[in-house]
Every structure is written in structure tokens, then in C-alpha cells.
Design a protein around this nucleic acid. Sequence first.
RNA 1: GGAGGGAUACCCAAGUGGCUAAAGGGGGCAGACUGUAAAUCUGUUGGCUGGUGCCUUCGAUGGUUCGAAUCCAUCUCCCUCCA
Length: 405
Amino acid sequence: MSVFDVLKERNFIQQMTHEDEIKELLEKEKVTFYIGFDPTADSLHVGHFLQLMVMAHMQRAGHRPIALIGGGTAMVGDPTGKTDMRKMLTKEEIFHNAEAFKRQMSRFIDFSDGKAILANNADWLLNLNYVEFLRDIGIHFSVNKMLTAECFKTRLERGLSFLEFNYMLMQAYDFLMLNKEYGCVLQMGGDDQWSNILAGVDLVRRKEGKQAYGMTFTLLTTSEGKKMGKTEKGAIWLDADKTPPYDFYQYWRNIDDSDVEKCLSLLTFLPMDEVRRLGSLKDKEINEAKKVLAYEVTKLVHGVDEAEKAKKAAEALFEGSGDLSNVPTSTITSNMLGSNLLDVLVKTGIIPSKSEGRRLITQGGLYVNDENVKDINAIVTEDMFRQGYMLLRRGKKSYNKIILQ
RNA sequence: GGAGGGAUACCCAAGUGGCUAAAGGGGGCAGACUGUAAAUCUGUUGGCUGGUGCCUUCGAUGGUUCGAAUCCAUCUCCCUCCA
């Protein structure tokens, strides 16, 4: 089974420039392809993870990925899918983010022995000469045509700066450079990148007279069409400091029933037979599938050890298996005994303010060692700590362990 | 460059001198129901305070007033039309 069929079966593929040629190419040759990542934050997130999965599938099949870090394009900012221009990042921020991206990517892609290439478009974009670029590249772009691109449509209503308008040219230029430098013939990306990818394919054809290809894959959205991987607290990050593995695991454990099969297919390497079996489970049974999903994705992103810990913690808290050693933990010192419980919780960052804590207690949502706290003025006492810790619960499923030191 | 319109809490949006910590909706949080799901229903949603109350907040700064999100001045940003 070729990687083309794998991607197809797992429902990655959304659009392609030349379906038959791409299929044949991927079956017969070792293809150098690229996916771009703009370093607009200091960690990759779940959306990027989907792209990394594609890269991994492709690499397993013997193709050569180029992970292109958009150190240059991030200076401009991709207007796609945004209703407003986002705040401009400084060179320093972008550089710092790019370094973080590099570190994280090497966990998913094997960059050894030239099996994959890590490039940064800052290397060629930052030193471009304006007039030369216009004459050389700009000549091939029709503004009329660009304006019809879906990615600019919404922005034409709200306002689009000339800066951002140029993003498409830069991304097209990237493809051209990678084609010349590494023989890269295929650009992949999220479906929102379709028009940018087409621009690159066109440019390679015009400048080099060579055929290039583009493919987009499914955006990771929930069944309600919202971007997946976002919570009220912000994005789900791949960085363990920004999203602890326990929280990461819980995110997937609590995914909608209707999204389970999709996620298993896109975000794990489980065989499709198994994916389909798990996805077809009904009612309570589907919780088994969610556990598998949470474990597998956490394993890929944070490693086996962290996945095991997150799983054990979940079992302890929700299934009473007793081993609480991996539950998210805060520490207090014994001089805090006798303090107001809410003060302690604010201090440890478990609740954001005392008002919110009071509200929580008033509404019956706070538990110490599974006992409902009814008194707003509850005091922290030593007998709350059994075997050195207290188990705190907010609402149904948010747990913290507090250790007395 | 000229004319006009706008900026309100996490988001959308009402409010044009005191009754406004600020309607309504969305989102969030909590409760009920459940399967750590969804849908539904109920409550809640600036901070401090046991409660009374106090403090900060309606783009920014300064002013008028007993009293300002609301009136005035200056500034910043956004939008529309004309050039």
C-alpha cells in the first residue's frame, strides 16, 4: 500500500493539483516535499501536529521531507483565515520561536543523514532586493487573480494591508527556492493554504518550466466546525511546560464522541482496522476508544513515560485505582496550616481569585478529599492531609493534589 | 488631503448626566441528568469583603459637575464616502 493510499484511507487529503500524477509520483519515486511552519508562537500546537503526522507518514514511505520554518514569512504574517491583522512580531521573537520549533520537530521527524531537511526561509527572504524581486517574481502575479483567492476575500471586507498581501508571493518564492535548491516538487499544507500552494506551483512552472505539485489536507476541526486544539485557556501546545502532559491527555480523553474516529485516524499510527473498530463503539463503550486515543497521542507527543503517567493519574482519579502519584501536584509548607483554604488555593494558582473560590464553594463545586466544602471560611488543617497530601477537586473532573512539606 | 461614523467587560452588542459593576446574546464556570461525551434545564460570570460596604473598569489624557461610560478639549487607533 503506497503512502498515497495511506493518506487517502486515513482521510488526510483534501485537495490536489494533479491527483493521478501525484499518486504515480509517490508510488514510483522518492519525492522531496515541503511543509511550511510560521514561527508565530514559541511552541508548536495541535494543528501543527497533524502536519507532522503527514510528514512522518511520508518519511516512513521513503520520501524526503523539508520542514520549512517561516522565519521570513512570519515577518509579514499570513492573512489567511484571520479577520484582522495580527500583531507584528519582532525579529528576536521570531528567531526565538524558530529555535523552539526546531527542537520540537526533531522529536517527530528524523533529520539524521539527510533523511529530512530543516530549512528557514529567512535565509533567502530577508536579503531580497525589492526592485529585483518585483521584476523577477512580481511580474508573474496578477493582482486581479490574487484578489479572487478565497484567502483574501474576507480580508477585503475588513481591510488588508499591502504587507500581508505580499505573503502569497513570498510563499510562492519559497517553493521556487526549494525546487531549485533541493529538487522539491511537492508542497503540502492545511487546506487553508490552497491558494498559496497554487501560487507556488504556478511560479515554479513559469520560472523553471518544471511541473510541481500541491496537496492539502483536512484541517483539524471538531464536528461543529471549530478549530480543534483550542480551549478557553488557549491552544493545546506540544510543549510540556505550556500544556502539561496530564492536561494534554485529558483534552483527548474528553473529545466529542463524533470526533474520535477522525482523531484516531489522523493523529495516531494505529492500523485503520483498529481505528474503525474503536470508532464504531457506541455509548459508554466509546470511552475505551477515547482512552486509546488519549494514550496514543500523548505517547507520540510526550513519549511513553509521560503517557503512562497521565493514564495512571486518570485511572486513579476517575476509576479509583488508587495510585495518585502522577496527579498534578502543588506543594505548601506547614506554616500555611491554619490559613484560609481559599487563600492557599489562590496562592498555589489552583483558583484565580478568592471571589471565584467563594463562588465555587457557594455553588457546591469544591471538594477536599471527596468531601464537599460548604464553608467559605474553611481553614486548612493537618488532618486534611492523609499520607502527606490532600486531594482537591473542582467541579466534576478537575483535580489537584496538594502536598504538605 | 476633505467629509462623516466608530472604539463598552473573554467575544458580539445595548446604554447618551445619578436608579450602571453596566441590558441582551455567545462563551466560560458550577449544579441537575450522564459515560470524564453531546444535547437539555438551573444558577453564576471584575477584585477585596462573613454580610453592610469599599476599590478598579466603558480607547488614552486632561477638564466641567455634588455626581460622567454618558458633557467638553486634546490625542491614538479603526471604518465609510470623496480626492
